[in-house]
Design a protein around this nucleic acid. Structure first.
Lengths: 190, 190
DNA sequence: TCCGGTTGTAAGCAGCTGCTTACAACGCTA
DNA sequence: TAGCGTTGTAAGCAGCTGCTTACAACCGGA
């Protein structure tokens, strides 16, 4: 160790602590779900005292909301509707890189209630609303829900259950099969 | 109260206590998932002292295994393969009656690990193995996984998330849409 | 009637949970 | 440099968790 104060540059940096907590929480919630992640684990992963978690976010549930709010709407906001389904599918299947783990978080926390459940529902609504614009069938809402359900189911079987052969299947193969099958579901009568 | 010993017929009935525990656990695990269900709740719902839960089943996790083992393979064993997909779908969509809540239990407990995860995986394998017999495509296993994923996704969106319009959609409509779409997925080249 | 194993019960244990509090270290401003 | 709000920290609280233990009630067979 040098003579410098141990962490060059930033000590006493509230914004950095909040970011570290959000990042750590996002990772752990995606891996373990809401219930099985403890505030002590989050603070430990963030390298931050756990009391700060409550100072900055108020409660574990509020932190969960903040995480989902930050990451959840990202893809939704940056992807044009006609590509949302395949983009979500591909992002979910991507073997590496900063894939969006919102669905995983959603799934692993599906037992939780309270505010966490509310925000989960809200994001689901937004996804479905966008997907529903892809077809002009009279039951567009139902069709969108079914498409969303398939996305979530694939995420569940692949990421949470880790079931083979789906878990290590080629993303291209999965996309081809799914997109072919959903042609009858999400299409315009042109 | 009469002069009778409070519960006419059966006191000191180990088999009945075990059955009551299994029934109560099946209900609560399906409603709340493994983590959010406590042994005290199970014993309370069963009208049984919680120490008996450990005497008869050893641990909360072993009880979970017993529940899934009892209910999980029921439908699998009694349904011919070519009807398994639509039967599971319909059983899941059935608005009332003794529908099979295995998928719900599975979903709400998807954060759990250990032995619970192992038995979950095992049942998933069995479902997929049966579904894979429905097509002669070379990637039958992958196709079966995708079909299973859709089943689970629909259960998730409908039962756990309670998302409309899917949650209260007509089972016939759902079946029609899903079975049409999966035609390309599970078919024989005849 | 007495015995011995089975069934049911109350109480409690250690460990973990989310959350709070009291306080020290810091660094900006006057 | 003195004051003061912000940031970081250690310790602890009450409540709940899965699980155990010690013991009373019961009942069939001797």
């Amino acid at each position: 160790m040098g003579t410098q104060p141990e962490q060059a540059g930033r000590r006493r940096d509230a914004a950095a602590s909040q970011r570290a907590l959000l990042d750590a929480a996002a990772k752990l919630f995606a891996e373990r779900g809401f219930d099985r992640t403890t505030v002590r684990e989050i603070a430990g992963e963030a390298g931050v005292n756990q009391a700060l978690l409550f100072r900055y976010f108020g409660s574990k549930e509020a932190l969960f909301e903040a995480v989902v709010a930050r990451n959840g709407r990202e893809q939704l906001a940056t992807t044009p509707p006609e590509r949302l389904f395949s983009a979500s599918l591909r992002s979910m299947l991507a073997p590496e890189g900063p894939r969006n783990r919102t669905l995983e978080t959603y799934l692993r926390s599906s037992g939780s209630d309270g505010a966490a459940a509310a925000i989960r529902q809200e994001i689901g609504e937004e996804y479905a609303r966008v997907l529903a614009t892809l077809t002009d069938a009279p039951d567009a809402g139902l069709r969108a829900d079914l498409a969303l359900a398939w996305l979530m189911g694939i995420a569940l079987v692949r990421e949470v259950a880790g079931k083979e052969p789906l878990a290590s299947a080629d993303p291209d193969d999965v996309c081809r099969l799914v997109l072919t099958a959903t042609k009858t579901l999400l299409e315009r009568s042109k």
